[in-house]
Amino acid sequence: MDVGKILIDGLRAAVGVPAAAFAVSAVGLNLQFGYTGLLNFGHVGSMLLGAYGLAITVDLGGPMWLGVVAGIGAAVLFGLALGYPTLRLRADFLAITTIAASEILRLVFRSEFARPLTGGVFGIQSFADGFFALNPYPDGVYGLGTFRFDERQLWVMTLGWLLVGLGLAATRRLVYSPWGRTLKAVREDEDATASLGKNVFLIKLQSLMLGGAIGALGGMVLAIDQQNVNPDFFQPIVTFYVYTIVIMGGAATITGPVIGAVLFWFLFEAMDGFVGAAVELGWLGPWFDSTDVGPIRFAVFGLGLMLLMIFRPQGILGSREELMIDAR
């Protein structure tokens, strides 16, 4: 087993485009879930709208900047449409509505009648040429040994990590502001917050819409990297990857979502290499072959998550003191 290569593959993933894109997306969910306590189980819907907003706009002949605006706008409206009818109701209504809505979005986007606009099951390709035309990195590969990226990957990584930086700066500014205090207050107790003259409904709606806009940016980074959007990427499981990332890194911490994303992709990739090698070496006995690598990886991942919840439920950055507080 080439442990060195497995670790380096893990590291590549940890700094790569998916890690950056999921970090951006997780920054948005952290605002909703971590700071405001909103159970949004349809976060992938915002990512889908970001990706498709961009792809469709360019596909129709529009400029990329307009696609970015369209993607963000669509996600904000999605937040409004979901929040408006449900945020006055009990918290579980939002959870149920959002998970259903994100699935409806995916099914509509992949349907035959939407195909003229969304490309149906085939999706849309080659809509980010404008972005790659601006690539300042000369052609070539950068890095050492197997830790290498080509100029295209490097350019998308630059975009992705730049957005992560912006997202963190914005989060820091917001959560230390009086507005951020109202988010946390809503998370702790809506009645108490309302009794002090704060419009709880508006606060939740803003959090949902802003978090959705940030999620849309994450979706765009993924789409640009692939030069491809496809409805079946945006499955509900993606939302739960983002939850894993936020919880693993530490919900309601500023950099937690980024730490979580880096760790998630490192483990995801390293686990792949490790389980693959283990199967090949016959360590898992005659019962498993190479087709089982994917499922085993998920099972191990799930086990890891359970252990994390048992031994460090506050995540990597979260404070145990804060978690243990009896939220009467």
Binding site: K184, A185, A192, D326
Partner: peptide, 12 residues
């Protein structure tokens, strides 16, 4: 108003 069953914002 205040509440009979206190509603403190625990993690503030």
């Amino acid at each position: 108003r205040t509440f009979q069953l206190t509603k403190s914002l625990a993690r503030l």
